[in-house]
Write a protein that binds this DNA or RNA. Structure first.
Lengths: 335, 335
DNA sequence: GTGAAAGCGCTAACAG
DNA sequence: CTGTTAGCGCTTTCAC
């Protein structure tokens, strides 16, 4: 059906050898300017395009990289993807996005799918449900370059990029305390995610600094990262039914901020909602929800840095043993 | 660096020929059960994975398809992508997503990138800025299977899936009229998009049916589909400054609904906002914005149908000349 | 400055 | 039931 023109066709038409055509198209210094011009003109005229699959096979490289995120319909991740793409395209790489939907099984399947030469490297942000990392470890041991961003794995010898979650969480919590709230709850992400622990630390640190005792009953985890709205609704109902209701909530993620606000909207009039501050990269959420203070992560930058690190790993001639763990600053947006 | 085991390696280790190994791995009926078992065991033990690039080159097929949407951080499109993936994975296809950001140039670059054998077919939803279709037409003439969804092109001989935009728009407008509003504005998408014309028709039809005269000055187009928030803000300011302000607005898309609500939030207190009804597939937008009536498109279904049609084109032995234009029903969600 | 030939990993005739 | 061979399109020595 779809039969594009090949180097052979050009060679035949111009009475040259395929190798000459190949060299002419890659602008080799060995080739006569005159010949180059003929080849390039013919190629353009006939809409020739190098077959990337053959090229990949030859080079043992696909010039594409895989990205694994929980979902793309998420401001943070879509901005990170934009950052990744901005670097990737500039360096001649394709970007293949795949979504785990925060489910362990999807993550395993997708990573398997991407691995083994279909991609030259992987950019991963862990799924909320994943506790077992052997599927990733195995690939890494085989030599597949991997860089983690945002949601990383401990004790994994590779580059990582994250934001300063502890500090951001602390700022957000402090901003609630500053506004006079005393009973501040924490709606947390899945317990085994790296970001969950760090953000929890920041929350605790803020309370400690202001001599507010930590009340464990004010912390609720969402094991599916809010993918299941029911778990967020349940958390909101739990907070509402406490004898001493929280007057404010620090929410650990974009997805959960959305879920939390909508859960409360279903449960009570807006005037009686607790104050909410949380991590969010959404442009509109904060506009639609007056008084919502948010922590912005440098998502675009994080994508860029992650991609740069991955390219460094891919293009390095020798195995890399010296890994960087870059931490970017967050920004507090207060209204 | 990353040197996965090949069929040759297995053949060598087991003292078989590569072809036997290949056949054993694809469970060919010709191969002895005993041999199959040995091969499969060895392959699993050594974590063999078929090199998809070599396989693609051999078959002249990549078993991957390209999706071009304006952006993934959009409820409608991310749901459509989920639908596409659900069918694709089941049939053994990879999905490569690329974003045009509603910009003509990005669309051209991305489509070129995807085409020429890197993908077996294309699923396209047009960018808001695109007026010239020659880049797509050229590929189609060369035989690349293409299916359009949601934002289609007129006079293009191929399968399409859309939703009943005219009817949905009419329902939304009627719902505003029912609630007693008389001066109903229309915030429209880019003028040359297929969906823009259809939704405008529905709006006009609703007015006509209720004997409300059409007032052209109440219609504003967003040439970049709301990608530039400034153009939405400008439209909101325009409506506010009209001598006779609209008391309700029918908004043509998800992105514009967001933009419109946040523009008004910036400009005036919530109590004085006009009523808003519009196309939106967002789960939370309607929850966060009381009184927001929305038209839901069957995005997931649309993705599924589009993918099925594309596979039909790809796998057809003979050129297809009999094209379908499927129209799916929308749903009105009223509060 | 150009060509011939080999090979990336896989598969499908064709032979036995 | 298994092996031999050729070739997908491209690139890159090695010759000339």
């Amino acid at each position: 059906m779809f039969k594009p023109i090949t180097i052979k066709d050009i060679a035949h038409a111009l009475e040259l050898s395929p190798s000459t055509v190949s060299r002419a198209l890659s602008d080799s210094y060995e080739i006569n300017e005159e010949t180059k011009k003929r080849v390039i003109e013919y190629a353009e005229k006939h809409n020739y395009r190098r077959n990337p699959i053959a090229s990949s096979l030859r080079h043992g490289r696909s010039y594409s990289i895989g990205v694994v995120v929980c979902e793309v319909a998420n401001s943070f991740f879509s901005q990170a993807i934009d950052g990744i793409e901005s670097v990737a395209y500039g360096k001649g790489y394709h970007v293949i996005i795949s979504q785990s939907h925060d489910a362990y099984e999807r993550e395993v399947v997708n990573i398997q799918h991407l691995a083994n030469r279909a991609v030259d490297g992987l950019l991963i942000s862990m799924s909320a449900e994943t506790k077992d990392f052997s599927h990733i470890l195995k690939l890494h041991e085989q030599g597949l370059p991997i860089v983690f961003f945002d949601r990383v794995i401990d004790d994994f010898e590779t580059h990582t990029v994250t934001s300063d979650n502890r500090k951001g969480a602390k700022q957000a919590t402090l901003s609630l305390i500053d506004r006079g709230f005393k009973k501040i709850a924490h709606l947390a992400n899945a317990p085994h995610l790296s970001i969950t622990a760090e953000r929890l630390e920041g929350y605790e640190e803020a309370l400690r600094q202001c001599d507010i005792p930590l009340d464990e009953s004010l912390i609720r985890y969402c094991h599916h990262g809010g993918r299941v709205q029911e778990e967020v609704d349940e958390a909101a109902r739990y907070f509402i039914n406490l004898r001493e209701k929280p007057d404010a909530i620090f929410v650990a993620s974009d997805r959960l901020s959305m879920g939390c606000l909508s859960a409360y909207n279903k449960l009570m009039p807006r005037e009686s909602h607790p104050a909410v501050a949380g991590f969010s990269n959404s442009d509109v959420l904060d506009l639609l929800q007056p008084g919502f203070t948010c922590i912005r992560q440098p998502a675009f930058k994080m994508g860029q840095v992650a991609m740069e690190m991955l390219i460094q790993l891919i293009e390095s001639r020798y195995p890399v043993y010296d890994f960087e763990n870059i931490v970017l600053e967050t920004e507090l947006i207060q209204r």
